[in-house]
Design a protein around this nucleic acid. Structure first.
Length: 426
DNA sequence: CCAGACGTTGTT
DNA sequence: GTCTGG
DNA sequence: CCAGACGTTGTT
DNA sequence: GTCTGG
């Protein structure tokens, strides 16, 4: 289900927005540079996104040596040597009372993985079912106990199936305009060999649960969404809880707040495309207006209030079961070619960046991550940003936000699909 | 003991 | 890494 | 998650 | 259909 979402904000913007919701942020990754999270309205698995979590060591919350399952108590209790020890104590800098934003790669790879896992394996861990966490064994055991986090997004996409071949993308966001915080799990792995040997690779997964009544027509599953400042969020992120419990399991339930759901441009289906229009109702007046402005203003970033607030979707989800067919047809086509509008000469070259071919031909033998094609149009601050609460100045605490170590850049799968990451011993 | 799984979604 | 099956 | 590729021989 | 890239 949650296999694509929107996060076109820089870490600094995310930080500010969370702080406006009274969330403590003691560190954040750089907006740019190696390992920086990607900004895209079409955020896909494998990208580096923004995760929020307690500032605990790489082995997670709780005592360094303890086993999450509490199994056996023997052991000499002396040998410190933290888990992946060596190389400086990676801890001394951690403070569980601090919460940080960190860049991590979407698609969880467990810490015990020996080699860079193949693509298909990783794709299966972009999500984690809430009911999988209710069972005791399994690969999530350590993470659910000690490595819980929030995955930050503006909203997510879901494709409504209409008929045997048609799929209409819908965007889902919070009605109150706040950032969407998914319950997630993270981990850190250091491969034993390969080009990434020794590097710390941070990855994450998004927890899914049953859809709430509002989204049932779209899909039967949805990500777990937590409200900023809620008790559920506090529990989920609490580093003092380093064992699974009913309280924690209880956090994982369908969202009870209000969401906004509406169809969007089919262009979002093509990975690699990116445009602010993807999070705007496809057939709305705003959309047309925005798109027009968008291209009209190509040269000047300031422009008028282009896409400021796109409330009232007026398109709304319309029916579904039987009316499905019509839902998409016209409206979508319309937008697809609406760029030409009724008389404007300008046309669609759009903001939609064309997806690149898969002609892997790296001129330089380095750099992994897919090219961050600088979106044709950069959206300073696209939609969103309600400024609801308008808290007093977000006192930018004087702490150095550089506490978070830049995560190792992930390597794109595919180069060498060795081992499946589940199969290795210690 | 060792070897192998450890996952999700969607579709049938 | 842990847990299960053989 | 969806979209798109999915191939060989031979020549430069 | 399956697999890969983004």
């Amino acid at each position: 289900m949650c296999g694509r979402y929107a996060l076109a904000l820089r870490p600094s913007q995310v930080r500010r927005m969370l702080e406006e919701n009274d969330m403590q942020v003691d560190g954040a990754p750089e907006d740019e540079g190696p390992g920086a999270p990607r900004q895209s309205h079409n955020f896909a698995p494998g990208y580096h996104g923004i995760v929020y979590r307690a500032d605990v060591p790489d082995y997670g919350a709780g005592p360094a040596k303890e086993h999450s399952s509490g199994t056996k108590g023997s052991s000499s209790a002396k040998d410190d040597t933290a888990v992946t020890n060596n190389t400086k104590t990676d801890q001394d800098a951690h403070d569980p009372n601090h919460f940080i934003l960190q860049s991590m790669k979407w698609g969880l790879v467990p810490f015990w993985t020996k080699r860079n896992p193949d693509y298909s394996s990783v794709m299966k861990t972009i999500n984690c079912r809430d009911d999988s966490l209710a069972q005791n064994g399994g690969m999530w055991n350590t993470m659910k106990a000690r490595k819980r986090c929030l995955v930050i997004a503006q909203g997510f996409y879901e494709w409504l199936k209409v008929g045997p071949k048609e799929k209409v993308p819908h965007y889902v966001k919070r009605k109150d305009g706040k950032l969407m915080c998914f319950a997630g799990l993270w981990d850190c792995v250091r491969y034993e060999e390969g080009e990434r040997e020794g590097e710390r690779n941070y990855t994450y997964t998004i927890i899914t649960t049953d859809s709430n009544a509002q989204l049932k027509f779209l899909h039967d599953r949805m990500p777990v969404i937590l409200d900023p400042g809620s008790e559920a969020m506090r529990i989920w992120l609490d580093p003092e809880r380093h064992e699974w419990s009913k309280d924690l399991q209880g956090v994982l339930k369908p969202y009870e707040g209000e969401l906004e759901v509406y169809p969007v441009s089919k262009e979002v289906g093509k990975v690699g495309n990116d445009s602010p229009s993807f999070i705007i109702p496809v057939a709305s007046r705003e959309n047309k207006g925005n798109i027009a402005n968008f291209f009209a203003n190509q040269g000047k970033p300031k422009g008028k209030a282009s896409l400021k607030d796109q409330t009232e979707p007026e398109v709304e989800v319309v029916t579904e079961m039987d009316g499905v067919k019509r839902v998409k047809t016209e409206s979508l086509d319309e937008v697809a070619k609406d760029a030409d509008d009724g008389g404007m000469k300008r046309e669609q070259e759009h903001a939609v960046t064309a997806g690149s071919k898969r002609r892997a031909e790296s001129p330089a033998p380095e750099e992994k991550e897919p090219p961050h094609k600088k979106a044709t149009v950069k959206s300073p601050s696209p939609v969103t940003q309600p400024t609801r609460k308008t808290r007093s100045a977000t006192t930018n605490v004087g702490k150095s936000p550089a506490k978070v170590k830049a995560p190792a850049k992930g390597k794109e799968p595919g180069a060498q699909k060795i081992t499946k990451f589940f199969g290795n011993s210690a």
